[in-house]
Structures are given as structure tokens and as C-alpha cells.
Amino acid sequence: MRGSGPAIDTRPWLLLTPALLSIAALVVVPMSFILVYSFYENIDLAVDRVAFQFSNWRELLDDNYYHVAIWKTLRLSVIVTVLAAVLGYIPAYFIAMTKFRQRWLLLLLLILPFWVSFIIRTLSWIHILGNQGALNGLFQWLGLIDAPLSMMYSETTVIIGFLHVFLPYMILNVYVSLDGIDDNLEPAARTLGATPWQAFREVTLPLSLPGLAAGCLLVFVLTGGSYVTPLILGGPNDYLFGNLIHDAVVSELNWPMGATLSFTLLVLLGLVVVIYSRFMGLNQLSKAFR
């Protein structure tokens, strides 16, 4: 393109100005205040002493309580992301490729669950998997079981809850990139002698990777930062790092520790984004060579 000379191109920065200004005012500055708090000392509930000391950071490094939570969070985020990718890719492919004319309806249906409040949606799994839930009712009616099965408040229900909330993000992201692929490419590959599976694998799948990657990133990051779902659907052992942050800030009113923990989470999830950004960069490069 013209103007790709050695001089610094100002156009991208113009386009980025509104976004970066908002981010600076609403995220970067507030989080700097929070960073300062991580060096303060919490004396009593909601009472902090202004200081510059590292006891909160030391506690984070020394205390196994936090390490277990980090491990649990990463593990669960990976599980949810993989399951969401597996569950979400095929429906996205179906929506993108279907000849069904009311495609927008399928998309709208995906968003629909969001119109019912998140809390109510999450609680409604109790109506399905609970002792007097729909599934137990159905099984008993069919005579498969005598007493209700206990299915609620386990890691499985937490995963189900997460999948239900995050799956639409995955599907829509994948769909959007699948939909952008030239419809003639796959048939073209077929005429060159590729089997449908080969055509998909060699043509469609690579081209849809940006969407899949964006979906995975969102699901991973959103799971990693949650705390409400395990609180509602989990048992005593189901918690994430976000729960520790919420406990520190809201129940212990210990902002310094809450700040320390938040920054830890921010850095961990930020690393994931950097990896994603690199991957997307590579992906664009490989496209240029095709």
C-alpha cells in the first residue's frame, strides 16, 4: 500500500485514540491506584496504613493457599476452554454453512439465553440437575431410578454452568471468522481432488483459526476471572482465584491483599493475551504468504 514508507504512520494511532484514551482513564489509571494499595498494610477490617512494604507480596509467595487456588483456576480454565471449543466449533460451522435462510434466527437464539439474568440462568441449573429438577423428575417418571440422584454442587456442575455462560462467545467468534471465508474455496479444493475432510482441514479450519483463537482467549480469560458461578453451583471445594480476591476485598475488606491478588491474576491472564497476540500475528503472516 501507499505510505508504508519508513516515516511513522499516524493513521493507526488516530484510529486507536478513542479506545486508548478510554482504557487509560478507566483501566490504567484506576489500576495504578490499586497497585499502590498492594504495598499498603491492612491493620483491621477496612483500615489500611499507608506504607511501602512487601508483606502482601510475601504472603502471596509463601502461602500455599494462594498457590492451590492458582493451580485450580488454570486447570479449570483449560478444561472449560477445551470443552467450549469442542462443543462450539461444530455449531458455528453449521450456522456458517447452512443453506437455511433464516440464519440470523440461529444467531439470535444463541444470544437469547443472555436476556435472562445471569444469576437466574445459573440458578436454573438447580431446576434441571437438582433433586427435584427436570432430569431427576424424568428419570423417576421413566422408572429408571427410585430415589433422586445427587448431581448438584460439584465441579461438574460448575463446568456446566461455565460452558452455558461462555459457549455463545465461542460460537459467535468462530462463526464470524467462518462466515468471512470465501464460499468457493472448499468446493475448489474438492475439484482438485481433496476429500471433504481434507478440504475442511486444509482450507476451512486454518482460515477459521483466528475466530477459534479469539473465542478460546475469551473463554479462558473469563473463566479465570470468575467467582460467582462456583459460589452458586459449586460445593465447598469448588473455588477459583477470583473467589479469593472477592473474599479479600468484600468479606475481609482487605484492599491491600485484594490488590496484590488482583495484580497476580492480571499478570497471569495478561501472559495468555500476549501469547494470543503473538499467535494472531503469526497467523496474519502466514496468510500473507499464501
Binding site: 483501566v27 476471572g225 485484594g258 493475551v273 497476540s277
Partner: peptide, 26 residues
């Protein structure tokens, strides 16, 4: 570009409780 991407995505990386409190302090 990596930094800008990370910045743009940062609102979902920050726990909302903390972002909320930080903004109130600001």
C-alpha cells in the same frame, strides 16, 4: 502492537470488583 492488544483486552483481565473500586478511587 502486542502491548496495544493487551491493553484493549485488559478490562476482562482485571477482576471487576477491583476495577470498580479502582475507578471509584480515581
Amino acid at each position: 502492537k502486542d502491548l496495544v492488544t493487551t491493553l484493549l483486552i485488559s478490562p476482562v483481565l482485571v477482576p471487576e470488583t477491583v476495577l470498580a473500586v479502582g475507578l471509584l478511587i480515581f
